[in-house]
Amino acid sequence: MSDEVELHPAVAGAQPYMRAETQGENSAPEDAPLFDDGAGRERLEKVLSRYPTRRAALLPLLNYAQERNGWVSRPAMKEIAGELDLTPAYVHSVATFYTMYNQRPVGKYLIQVCTNISCDLCGGEEVLERFLEETGTRPGETSEDGLYTVMEVECLGACGFATVVQVNDEYYEDVTPERVPEILDELD
């Protein structure tokens, strides 16, 4: 987090939060603190400076927890609750409302295959099947080597380039089942 100093407060709560650097074997332990160091405190202050209420910093801080630790653990939710004067239960109710917060560690590469209508018309299901087959996993399960978690995802908003696959913070467009092995090879 050496670039923390340069981060403009306007974008401090908006950093990509699905990264190989913090997923798989790099995932932080459950009780890894968020705001115990300079980087964490600084991020917290920058985010808070952009909203008239503390509660509004909730999503930006959940994003930060995942960016930093690779997932959002219960202790992390509790720590955020403490900073924002909310109950841990409230923070949990928000974190679980959304699909992108990993409530347990995921593979180094989180592979999300869109099977919504436009992708479905263009073979999204077959792409999903192929990813599962190649990684030897079931949907949502992490491969034994900790490298891959494959899951189905709802519309990724790139429907003209079906099938769309998101691997961590990157999109792969026009994916066909045939391209799957090549994509996996490129990853690691």
Partner: peptide, 23 residues
């Protein structure tokens, strides 16, 4: 300020979006 969501279609509904930011 850039405010980033976390995967919920309903956050695109205008009052849903405002709730998402504030609450």
């Amino acid at each position: 300020t850039v405010h980033v969501g976390a995967g919920a279609y309903i956050a695109g509904e205008e009052t849903g979006m405002l709730s998402s930011i504030a609450d």
